[in-house]
Design a protein around this nucleic acid. Structure first.
Length: 593
RNA sequence: GGGGGCGUAGCUCAGUUUGGUUAGAGCACUCGACUGUCACUCGAGAGGUCGCGGGUUCGAGCCCCGUCGCUCCCGCCA
């Protein structure tokens, strides 16, 4: 039916008679001559129709066929004369003079354009999703999905070559009370009981290790019933990895290799073989967040000692209460208007800070509420240059870190400090094992409850689990988390203790909720650990797409709906009855489960 | 759960500031002309529940209230 994909014909094919099939991308009817740009996933090709080589019926058909119709044709590949070469087309040196032509899939007028003119804006997201069968025809989205395919293949190849087995885990699993909300699936055979869709294959992959599979990976679909974002879908794909008889370093080396292979596949050949490393403590101290963007500095510094000597009420009180005064110095920020700095303060307040203390230096003079309190020693310690703006937050670290994080991100953007060509990969290491709820003091796992703490921390502070660091690691690129993992607790007694520290002290409850993991560990567990990568996010970064929706064929809207098929939907009462589910009406009168 | 933006022709938008005749443009579509175009060009035509509902008014695309949808962000995402 087809001798060639249309986008691959080149000068070397001149003289061949070819059979082609594809979609009418655009057409130009010049009266005596007709041109059609034929499209398939390999690209565009110009078909030419003229009285010298096309029969009258063929010319008439070509002139009347609508865009997006599917056609089959036959013709001869001819070279274009030099002045008629189209350098923007891969096939621009040739065209096909069509001798026979058939419309096999006539198309109604498309609801939104597939072929866009230069500078023409994209249709609204809602329409693109509703008419996804057209949107996915656009070369940009086709390229994204083709890249996605290549990234999956190169990952499978890399991991397979390193001895990893691709093993599958169930989609119908057990609800997990911690973490994100589960998608629940009612059981028909067991009235009132529910499966959950997996948030991740975590426990299964650890059991694989207990079973001796030694090295596992899976391109795993995961589900979380939380609110969406541009970079968050309820259903997403992760590259999930676990290995036995390994240490943290082994997983990090493997991950660096895997990332390198994906980045090379996407055309980036300058990925370092070893990524930079930073402890969580340093990341929080100097960047205010656990996934710093190293493309710019604007480091946060501790100015507590400078302020300790100043008779300034705000900072004095804060310091007396055990807080610190931390801040950033912004070269050139002194030129910003009052309003522009107010906007920064709004960001800091949005992150929980009471406000931002401002200090500006211009022509050797200091300006701001602090200025008249500054001693010569303080001025020397601050070391401001003319044109600098310094912004301080006097608060506990858990307030000042996120506040200064947002401020410095916005300032880096304003000061155009971000080199968008740079790729700064970073390992963030030694996350705390637990975080303490500031009100209740209750512990929650920072990574997850199966992560192993540093053995020496447990030994040094046996009764202060809040001080334990975890053998966890995140890999970060330019401020975006690509993946994260940890060495797991393989000793069942330690695992049991972790559950107890997280408030699940009751042995029976532990067995009920995590029994099948604990049993697996008790049956002989090797030391093991792993990592998982957010694959959609990686595909988004490598394709340059602005949204996860542009690298997922059929994504959900931010309200978690599919607009093309119209899911979710209400189901007939008899179907619900089979599932032993009754539905009550919400205030708005809409049906809700 | 909260906040911001958007919703006008098939698509992208103008019109909303200050309510006032028959709501416009470009692209797409239909018809016509055209033998080297490649965002072809030129001429003509058709195409509207101004998201939806209610209110104010002599009169609403425009003002008010509500609601729905899309989107961005906060919360949330072990």
């Amino acid at each position: 039916m087809r001798s060639d994909p249309c986008g691959l014909l080149r000068r070397a094919d001149v003289g061949r008679t070819v059979q082609l099939g594809g979609w009418v991308h655009r057409s130009r009817d010049l009266g005596g001559l007709v041109f059609i740009d034929l499209r398939d996933r390999t690209g565009l090709l110009q078909l030419a129709f003229g009285p010298a080589w096309s029969a009258v019926e063929v010319q008439q058909l070509a002139a009347s066929v609508g865009v997006e119709s599917v056609i089959l044709c036959e013709g001869e590949v001819v070279a274009r004369e030099p002045e008629r070469v189209n350098p923007e087309m891969g096939t621009g040196e040739v065209e096909v003079r069509v001798t026979s032509f058939r419309v096999v899939g006539p198309a109604v007028t498309p609801a939104l354009p597939v072929a866009r003119g230069r500078g023409e804006k994209m249709p609204a997201e809602e329409l693109r999703l509703r008419h996804r069968y057209l949107d996915l025809r656009r070369p940009e989205l086709q390229e994204n999905l083709v890249l996605r395919h290549r990234l999956l293949q190169v990952s499978r190849r890399f991991l397979t070559d390193h001895g990893y087995l691709e093993l599958e885990t169930p989609i119908l699993t057990k609800p997990t009370p911690e973490g994100a909300r589960d998608y629940l699936v009612p059981s028909r055979v067991h009235p009132g009981e529910f499966y959950a869709l997996p948030q991740s294959p975590q426990i299964y992959k650890q059991l694989f290790m207990c079973c001796g599979f030694d090295r596992y990976f899976q391109i795993a679909r995961c589900f979380r019933d939380e609110d969406l974002r541009a970079d968050r879908q309820p259903e997403f794909t992760q590259i999930d990895i676990e290995a036995s008889f390994i240490e943290r370093q082994d997983i990090m080396t493997l991950a660096e290799g895997l990332i390198g292979s994906m980045w090379r596949e996407a055309g980036h050949h300058d990925v370092p073989t070893q990524f930079e490393r930073m402890t969580y403590a340093d990341a929080m101290e100097f960047y205010g967040c656990d996934r710093p963007d190293l493309r710019y500095e604007l480091r946060i510094r501790d100015y507590s000692s400078v302020f300790a000597s100043l008779d300034f009420a705000v900072t004095k009180t804060a310091l007396a209460n055990g807080a610190r005064v931390r801040g950033v110095v912004l070269p050139g920020g002194g030129a910003w208007s009052r309003k522009q700095v107010d906007e920064l303060e709004a960001l800091a307040k949005g992150a929980g800070a009471g406000g931002l203390l401002r200090l500006r230096k211009a022509d050797g003079e200091y300006d701001g509420p602090l200025a008249k309190f500054l001693t010569d020693d303080a001025k020397a310690a601050l070391a401001l240059n003319d044109g600098d703006l310094a912004l301080f937050v006097a608060a506990a670290d858990r307030i000042s870190s996120p506040a200064l994080d947002r401020v410095r991100q916005e300032c880096a953007r304003r000061l155009e400090l971000i080199d968008d060509k740079a790729q700064r990969f970073l390992w963030v290491l030694d996350f705390p094992m637990f975080e303490e709820d500031p009100e209740t003091g209750a512990l929650a796992a920072v990574h997850h409850p199966f992560t192993a703490p540093h053995a020496d921390d447990m030994a040094a502070y046996p009764d202060e689990p809040a001080r334990w660091r975890a053998l966890a690691y995140d890999v970060v690129l330019n401020g975006t988390e690509l993946g994260g993992g940890s060495i797991r607790t393989s000793d069942p007694a330690t695992q049991s203790r972790m559950f107890a520290l997280l408030g699940i002290g009751d042995a029976e409850e532990q067995e009920r909720r995590f029994g099948f993991l604990l049993e697996g560990l008790r049956a002989g567990a090797p030391p093991h650990g792993g990592i998982a990568f957010g694959f959609d996010r990686i595909a988004m970064l490598l394709s340059g797409a602005p949204s996860l929706r542009d690298v997922i064929a059929f994504p959900k809207t931010t309200a978690a709906r599919s607009l093309y098929e119209g899911a979710p939907v209400a189901v007939p009462a008899e179907d619900l009855a089979q599932l032993h589910i009754s539905v009550r009406e919400s205030r708005a009168g809409n049906i809700r489960e």
